[in-house]
Design a protein around this nucleic acid. Sequence first.
RNA 1: GCUGGUGUAGCUCAGUGGUAGAGCAGCUGAUUCGUAAUCAGCAGGUCGUCGGUUCAAAUCCGACCACCAGCUCCA
Length: 634
Amino acid sequence: MVNITLKDGSVKQYEAGTTVMQIAEDISKGLAKNALVGRFNDRVVDLSFPVEENGTLEILTFESEQGRDAYRHTSSHVLAQAVQRLFPGTKLAIGPAIDDGFYYDFDTEVTFTPDDLAKIEAEMEKIIKEDLPLVRKEISREEAIAFFKEKGENYKVELIEDLPEDAGISVYQQGDFIDLCAGPHVPSTGKIKAFKLMSVAGAYWRGSEKNKMLQRIYGTSFAKKADLDEYLYRLEEAKKRDHRKLGQELKLFAVMDEGPGFPFFFPKGMVLRNELENYWRQIHREWRYNEIKTPIILNQELWKRSGHWNHYKENMYTTTIDEEAYAIKPMNCPGAILVYSSELHSYRDLPIRIAELGLVHRHELSGALHGLMRVRSFTQDDAHIFCLPEQITDEIKGVIDLVDSVYKMFGFPYHVELSTKPEKYMGSDEAWETATSALENALREKGMEYKINPGDGAFYGPKIDFHLQDSLGRTWQCGTIQLDFQMPEKFEISYIGEDGQKHRPVMIHRVVFGSIERFIGILTEHYAGAFPTWLAPVQVKVIPITERQLEYAQKLGEELFAEGIRVEVDERSEKVGYKIREAQMEKVPYMLVVGDKELASGAVALRTRKEGDRGTMDFDEFKKLLHEEIRQKK
RNA sequence: GCUGGUGUAGCUCAGUGGUAGAGCAGCUGAUUCGUAAUCAGCAGGUCGUCGGUUCAAAUCCGACCACCAGCUCCA
């Protein structure tokens, strides 16, 4: 007999060899029905797993992450089986569960069309109806290699060959379909209740563009049809928040054919930019930064010296001036360094924090462009901190606080990554190690949670990245803090120490918004275009009911305008409903409806974007509320 | 850059080889109205670009450009 501790803390006795499924049935019928996999002593296992020793057991359903993963992983096997039935000879690569579903990568001469997806879905339905049990088998390495070689599954063979020597190898079989897989899986294909194939796309084998491009089919699956429908509905809703769509509808910004990746900002989009920049200048003043502006075009020699020419040339635009080679800046750091070295510095002056809203240009691959999120010219809200080695941690912690306070104000959820040494890098391994652990220490001292992003650092140093989410949950790097020992060396910058000798300062590159463009993209999706009043391109719309109140409406408008409010008066001879509908669709936070009553009493009828009709209010009182809300950036 | 898809009026979209369409927006006129669309009329398109097939191309073929999804890459 073995003692099994259940999730609620109770301990039950079972005969050794009792399966997880049997225990689930013993606990409750309902649980057994919803059970997908189990967690036995922190290991996620199949329901057919026999319990041979004492331990804790949790039955996992679709409600848990591991349950969902197993469910979707099984879904991907069903997909693979369907594809191989319909397109014999298709080779299988990998097919994992992902955040919102699953995918499988295939290698075949056939190009999958959207029609094929429908056929594959139909075949998957059949496989689900057949309710084939998934059977796990552990086999030896040699057996596995021989088996998959025999089937011509060379990707699987490659995967097995790359597994560590001591790794156990398992396969899962459902009907005549056998796939290399660590598992776990749900007990049978009939467990899949609701699924949908979403799209087909290319994906390089093992993520390297040097390898063959495979065809990846994306899908998702849910425990209930209603949940799938809800997921699809939410996707549709999220698409309405797409900043590219809202940017056009609200006349904020656009990217045009004439300049792929070079965004245009319209008057209303410029209001957002300018307000953000005002805010940015205010907080940078508070955090003791000085602002500079450096040129967009600088001599190529500078870029050779900085190492950009060596490491970043493919991304740089170049030009010739008076037969001399110049480059358009892809980063602001060399310019900032020139400013730093334009005078002598004492150790007493450090840290020196110089900020720059710097317009940079980078040649990004055409396929990578994406609205404002990924462009070829953008304004970094950059700053370079020159400091003593012993000031590094405090400076980094300061930047973390600054970034955190800004993201919190907007209510952005974010996550942090520590990006380490890339393949192409500058400087010594020791310097990289020192820099990386300095960043790590700062994060630890701040008690920040972070994940390591290996090999994703800048060529001159490791970095802390702050990632924000767009409406579809895709994450974009915005803030970043990069520690750099290389540029100071390259440019031989210095400060005069207590000893009267020259010493090398450390340089920290950092951005808070990241790029103004990307940040506006995120902001637009986050607020679904309904910007808080301090950012709203139009803050107040005055709506006279008839021409009789036009003069009064204009007077109110003038008064608000004089106080710095962004106000529009809707003078058209339309019905109130029409004007309100339009103001509402433009997402104007406040509407002042004025008719004969308001004209007589000198008041306004207030309507808010969020709450609708709020009744009459004294005009001065409204102005007070409005100014206060703008001041507080609520 | 790669794989697949898409490209028709300012916007959203219909139109599969035979004279380019709708709704919204725009303009003109009427309407003066109390919280999400008043009515009527008018105007608007080298069908992404270039080339080919055909008596005839938005429609078929090719190249290129741009966009969308994903991969790769990055703020």
